[in-house]
Design a protein around this nucleic acid. Sequence first.
RNA 1: GGAGAGAUGGCAGAGUGGUCGAUUGCGGCAGACUCGAAAUCUGUUGUACCCGCGAGGGUACCGGGGGUUCGAAUCCCUCUCUCUCCGCCA
Length: 426
Amino acid sequence: MIDIQLLRNSIDTVAARLGTRGYELDVSGFEKLEKHRKDIQTTTEQLQSQRNAVSKQIGQAKARKDEALVGALMAQAADFGDKLKQMEVQNESVQARLREFVSLIPNLTHGSVPVGSRPEDCAEQRRWGEARKFDFAARDHVDIGAALGGLDFDTAAKLAGARFAVMKGGVARLHRALAQFMLDVHTTEHGYTEAYVPYMVSGACADGVSSLAKFKGDLFKIEDRDLYLIPTAEYPVTNFVRDEIVPLEKLPLKFVCHSPCFRSEAGAAGKDTRGMIRNHQFDKVELVQIVHPSQSYLAHEELTGHAEAILKKLELPYRVVTLCTGDTGFSAAKTYDIEVWLPGQNAFREISSCSNFEAFQARRMQARFRNDKGKTEPVHTLNGSGLAVGRTLIAVLENFQNADGSITIPAALRDYMGGAEKLSRP
RNA sequence: GGAGAGAUGGCAGAGUGGUCGAUUGCGGCAGACUCGAAAUCUGUUGUACCCGCGAGGGUACCGGGGGUUCGAAUCCCUCUCUCUCCGCCA
């Protein structure tokens, strides 16, 4: 949620900044709603105040056994009961409308975010590694996986339909090895605390990190329950601090969490249908940081570096891109996408997305800390994939493929693969 | 799945219709005493929102939601969660 005070005090600036990400703020709509709210809220609270005063007097009169006064006061009180009820209902309704209005507004992007909405408006920050030159025709992960007998989309389709994968044998183990490896690096080298979490969260939690109203179509919902399958561990982990006042000395909080992620991929029909680039279910190792506002942009660079460290250790070429204003997600103030080189697609593909949400999620979640003046203030939240396990598996298969159909196991993973240097068809 | 008990401020724990945002203790903060500290004493100490340039004023919140009432932490309905016992079970 953006700061409603900002909306009240400098709505034109806010509207202009939102405009850069392609969101048209209904300025006059807000101003009308806000005026309405102000009128109704103040009169409602005045009435409540009067009601409370009279009730108090009745109590006092009763204590003195002054029945005549009690009677007179009761008559007086009965008078505005209906009116008050009516005002309270109106107040509730206008407050709800205002809340909804504000909760549908995306975050303001940071000043360093390039303005634009086309892919070429995004700013490449850096590249690492050299795309390998193949002396044979590089295959994509679907063909490699099939040749290894370890990736089976037909069986997955039989079980659950399109956009699922079944992994077997060495490929399944490699997938597990990747997740273990990532967790170990982040906990032992980057200072994250490992977390295990529910794979379903309440609607309130979902709305704490994003807008449930806007994005519920992207989620799988449990029938007849206020529960959603998590599309990323960000949902449960960031909500660790919902409704909390975190002591200053506990900041920053750094969690790493390996979880499956479930996405309906509504609106992605026909996109990335081959293989496991875009599935309904995939594993991800997620990094989450809860930090002091003054530290969040430092933390953003750091966290992105933590995700990059995994790619470096795996010797996978990648580039880092700052998303432009139009591509930055609803809740984010700034996002770096890390794109890994996929020889099978001859392209860079997103393998991690690292965002600073500033206080946007914290306001929605009521996650605060106490500042040095003793006042509560929203924390800043960040997260990033470190990394998407399924896509990392794809990257390893494609970048480390050999002419004979086998895979060379990256040195960093060999301990997790029983010391094996190669993966070949059994 | 069956039976029962409970949910109050950072924590413990009172309060069962009226001056209760809430007794008290612990903890926290400030001060006194002290060379300093401990002990002791005094004061203070919830969150969110609104109005106001400010001083200040107001509203809501006792697990969530609804109801009764002039007035609800207290009564009624409902949901959720926690605990205990029995059964079953990865």
